[in-house]
Every structure is written in C-alpha cells, then in structure tokens.
C-alpha cells in the first residue's frame, strides 16, 4: 500500500503521484492521511486506483475522477466528485454543497447528508445519499439517477431534463417542471440495483417515490423551434 501524509507532502505531490498511473491498468491501494480540509485532494485520477482518504477534505475532492475508487473517511467540502466520469467516490460522513456537480458517470455514495444543490447539472452520474439533501438538488439535472434515502429540501429537480430522482422521505417542495411519476417494476428494479451497488441495506424500495421532468418548459416545446 502507498501511504501519503499530507502533513509531510503537498496535495500537488499527491495528485502528481496519482497521475503517474493515468491511462494504465494500475490498481494499487493508497492511504492518504491528514487531509485537514485541504482542497482538490485526489483529483484527476484516470486509473483503477483504490484511494482511501482518512479525514475531512475541503473543496473539489476526487473531482474529474475516472475509474478510480476513492473513499473519503470523513466529511467532504463543496464540489466532491464534481465532473466525475466513471469509478466510485464514497463519503462516509456528510458532503457540502454541489456534490457530484456536472458529473458524467460513475457512482457517488454519501453515507451522511448532502447539502444544497446536490447533483446540480448532473449528466449521467448516479448519486446515492443515505441521509437527506438540501435545497435545489438536481437543479437542471440532465441524466443519471439521484437516490435520496432521507428528505429533500426545497425546489427539488428544478428545470430537470432526463435525470431520475428517487426519494424515500419528505420533499419540502418541487422545483419548476419537476413532478412525481409512478414507480413501476422497472423503477423498483433500477432502484434496488443502485442501493445494492452503493452498499445501502435495510431500506425498502417500495417506500420510495419517483420524480422526473414534466417536460413542459420552453426547451421541451417543439413550437419554440421556430424561434431559430
């Protein structure tokens, strides 16, 4: 196992060491200690590395991750796993604002709560939150699935495109054009697969409700094509 102490070496040195394996099939394990809220820890990985970060991280941890499996054993600051392409990012604590923002793929698991704007503009990532999410989550979400095992804050799924949202608890309010949709066997199947991948157990899929786009906003109206 590679060990990296951020009290002794810089984040830049850590990321450089990780990037040396980019494009390879290297699957070594890494233990990063003393992150102490530092920014951009373990960003830009492009190899199936197994990275554990022991402590709380600041902004943009595991951003742009591709293939890597990053576990944050603590809380994450704003923008964890932003722009992730593939792989896994797991936060054992809670995450701050805009977790998984604009991410194209992979799985983000947050075992605690996520703050506001979780999954904003998500483009294909799957996000499973064991707790609750804050306001404006999945704002302009385009593709992927957001699973919320707790409650959702105000304006959930505002201006949604094709992403699917599953919520077990209460929804404080839906955003513009976001509506509840029926749970079919297909959706229960999809949800139970996501929960299994996330390692979330003891939850009944039948308790969830599904939300998606009503497709009524300007962009969805074919008549508006004449404007161009």
């Amino acid at each position: 196992m590679h060990r990296f102490d951020l009290d002794k070496n810089s984040v830049r040195e850590l990321n450089q060491a990780l990037h040396e394996h980019n494009g390879s099939k290297e699957n070594s394990t890494w233990m990063v200690t003393n992150p102490k809220g530092k920014h951009a820890v373990a960003v830009g990985i492009d190899a199936p590395l197994e990275v554990t970060i022991n402590g709380h991280v600041g902004y943009y941890c595991a951003g742009m991750n591709k293939q890597g499996r990053v576990v944050i054993d603590g809380n994450a600051g704003p923008g964890v796993a932003e722009n992730m392409m593939s792989g896994l990012v797991r936060v054992t604590g809670s995450a701050s604002q805009y977790a998984g923002a604009t991410a194209h793929g992979g799985l983000l698991v947050i075992e605690g709560n996520a703050s506001s704007r979780c999954g904003i503009s998500m483009k294909g990532i799957d996000i499973v939150v064991r707790g609750s999410v804050g306001q404006m989550s999945a704002f302009m979400a385009q593709k992927g699935r957001l699973v919320i095992c707790g409650d959702a804050g105000n304006a959930l799924g505002d201006s949604l495109y094709e992403a699917r949202i599953y919520v077990k608890g209460d929804v404080a309010g839906l955003g513009a054009d976001c509506v509840e949709k029926p749970m079919t066997a297909e959706h229960e199947q999809e949800l139970s697969e996501l929960l299994e991948q996330a390692g979330v157990t003891g939850i009944t899929v039948a308790d969830f409700r599904r939300y998606g786009s009503a497709r009524k906003l300007y962009n969805f109206d074919i008549d508006n094509v004449d404007a161009y």
């Binding site: 102490k36 809220g37 709380h56 809380n75 809670s94 701050s96 804050g134």
Partner: peptide, 22 residues
C-alpha cells in the same frame, strides 16, 4: 468559511460538525 480553519483547533477531529442551514 471552510473546515480547514476549524481543523487547527484542539479536538476538531472529534467535534460535532455541521453546515449551517440557509
């Protein structure tokens, strides 16, 4: 503004931590 400013305090790693709600 950020956790790293709190991380310097004694016992920060064992503190109860949260993000103030809007």
């Amino acid at each position: 503004s950020e956790y790293r400013a709190i991380a310097v305090l004694p016992g920060a790693d064992r503190a109860e931590r949260w993000e103030p709600e809007p």
